[in-house]
């Protein structure tokens, strides 16, 4: 099947994706035929009111869930066709994740949190320690490398999470409300960091309520009642030129 996803390497696309939940009260249509291609080198903000379906879209794009119909395609492969083992491998090596606060492993210090996905990927202790340290330095939290998450500020936690998201050098970084619990200054730092990540040529998809994040994004996708709001469909933010894929 030829679709919007076939054009670019490392590109993630939703093709006529629907997701329906069956509940005792009847079927709930969380997504109704969403199609969109998420480009490398760009930050795409997915916005919409609570319950509009934006988190559902992220779950489907990240392979946490499978669509009721339609498909999510990454590098020409439909995620729905992959067994759980291969999906886990994809999330480990090609995708990175930043969630709202408390998304670090609470019992591990920052450095070990960042090194964790590298360990799963089979890197040696030396490699993962060096690389984790470099990533913490990149996001300005290397001085907090030995602190466990509950000793970090909200902004520091999100920057450690960003470092962890890049642990295995992924093509796509997902961020779910990354500035949700942060003050304005910390939020701005995280947004800037996400833009830097996109500047590396990665696809960055941010689900957010935060207008400041949308303002900083290259593309804004507005979801309303499970559908892309045509009036604001994939508007390219004029203030930010897309960063070319490297």
């Amino acid at each position: 099947m030829s679709g919007i996803s076939d054009t670019m390497s490392g590109m993630l696309a939703a093709e006529a994706v629907t997701r329906t939940y069956t509940t005792p009260a009847g079927d709930v249509h969380a997504l109704r035929g969403v199609s969109h291609a998420f480009m490398p080198g760009r930050v795409t903000a997915v916005m919409g009111p609570s319950g509009s379906g934006k988190s559902t879209l992220l779950n489907l794009l990240a392979g946490f869930d499978r669509p009721s119909s339609g498909r999510v395609v990454f590098d020409g492969v439909s995620l729905g066709d992959l067994p759980e083992r291969e999906l886990a491998g994809l999330r480990l090596r090609r995708f990175g994740f930043v969630f709202q606060s408390s998304n670090l492993i609470s019992v591990l210090p920052a450095r070990k949190n960042v090194a964790f996905p590298m360990g799963l990927a089979g890197l040696s202790l030396r490699e993962r320690t060096d690389r984790a340290q470099a990533l913490l330095e990149r996001f300005g939290v290397d001085h907090r490398a030995d602190a466990v998450p509950n000793r970090l500020s909200g902004g520091e936690r999100q920057r450690v999470a960003l470092a962890r998201a890049l642990a295995n050098d992924p093509d796509v970084v997902f961020a779910d409300e990354p500035t949700g619990n942060l003050d304005r200054s910390s939020g701005r730092e995280v947004v800037n960091a996400l833009r830097e990540v996109a500047a590396d040529g990665r696809t960055v998809i941010v689900v957010t309520h935060d207008g400041a994040v949308a303002d900083a994004a290259d593309v804004t996708l507005r979801i309303v009642d499970g559908e892309i709001d045509d009036a604001a469909d994939a508007s390219e933010t004029a203030l930010h030129e897309p960063v070319a894929s490297t």
């Binding site: 886990a88 999330r91 492993i105 609470s106 996905p117």
Partner: peptide
């Protein structure tokens, strides 16, 4: 208590058997 944390561990690539 660690459902969310385990969800994150799975999200970053750990398999169920881990």
């Amino acid at each position: 208590e660690r459902t969310r944390e385990f969800g994150v561990v799975r999200a970053v690539g750990a398999r169920p058997r881990f």
